[in-house]
């Protein structure tokens, strides 16, 4: 199945923004493991920026970067959001409140706890009424989202913004799900070539696991990749950055590989 990448947003340690990340992933500049800057998520009105969770701001920050790069109008673009663990910061506060005798819950906290908080805020910020799907597939969440986005682009013939994101949970939940660092990546996908194409993808599912899934050559990048489902997009992003024909294999659960042929545009 063929599709095109038209815009990319990234936020992670040493990988804040596509321009800088592209150079790192292409091997043109070294990975400087600086803590990523605070996401601006300026697409949100100031009062919503204050009320929204850090997770939402990470997701919307990269979403906005990909859309701006492609000069796309969000009102024409469907979205697929992928997060393994969702609003863990909110869930921690909520479960802490429920463990007290009063069980006092704030209504704002409750409606920020849903797994689709980022998707909801994206809709509110952009006014888009296009379909938005929010999914989880543990460490394969990015891969599942790429499959969902590709199927949507193909069948519905509409551009799709894919946003994958997860932040390390706060303690004590961190011990249950030790995600090493925050990461968010966004891709704008279209079915047909567009002026801002960064790459063409041809993807297929395969149950031939005889070859290893693609990892990162750079040890620092490999640590990032393996520590967060959203960072499992890095082999694909690196292939796009290098601008040469590359075959990327992403693990989809333990049973299949999503095999992606990446071609420069």
């Amino acid at each position: 199945m063929e599709l095109y990448i038209n815009g990319i947003g990234t936020l992670g340690p040493g990988l804040a923004g596509w321009a800088g990340s592209r150079a790192v992933l292409a091997g043109e500049s070294p990975l400087c493991e600086a803590a990523p800057p605070e996401p601006s998520a300026s697409v949100l009105p100031p009062n919503e920026q204050r009320r929204s969770s850090e997770t939402v701001r990470w997701a919307l920050h990269v979403a906005q970067e990909a859309m701006q790069q492609a000069e796309a109008d969000a009102r024409d673009v469907a979205s697929v959001f992928a997060s393994s663990d969702g609003e863990t910061g909110v869930l921690d506060r909520l479960c802490t409140a429920l463990a007290t005798p009063q069980r006092t819950m704030s209504p704002t906290l409750f409606h920020h706890s849903v797994h689709n908080a980022a998707s909801g805020y994206w809709g509110i910020a952009t006014g888009s009424q296009q379909s938005s799907t929010v999914l989880a597939c543990y460490d394969s969440s990015f891969c599942a989202a790429l499959l969902e986005a590709a199927a949507y682009v193909q069948i519905e013939e509409r551009p799709v913004l894919l946003v994958a994101y997860d932040l390390p949970p706060p303690p004590p939940l961190y011990a249950a799900r030790p995600l090493r660092g925050g990461f968010a990546a966004a891709l704008l996908l279209t079915r047909t070539p567009a002026p801002h194409n960064l790459a063409q993808l041809d993807l297929a599912l395969s149950d031939d696991l005889s070859e290893n899934a693609t990892s990162m050559d750079d040890a620092g990048l490999e640590v990032i990749r393996s520590g967060n489902q959203a960072a499992r997009s890095l082999p694909l992003l690196a292939a796009i950055a290098r601008q040469c024909v590359t075959l990327v294999r992403l693990e989809y659960l333990e049973d299949q590989h999503l095999v992606i042929r990446v071609m420069p545009c």
């Binding site: 849903v114 998707s119 379909s131 999914l135 599942a144 969902e148 599912l205 659960l253 049973d255 299949q256």
Partner: peptide, 20 residues
């Protein structure tokens, strides 16, 4: 062993599972 996911869009979640 085929593709799998959970869709979580609050109260429309399992309706959207049919679409996907």
């Amino acid at each position: 062993r085929g593709p799998a996911m959970v869709i979580s869009t609050a109260c429309s979640s399992s309706a959207k599972a049919f679409a996907t």
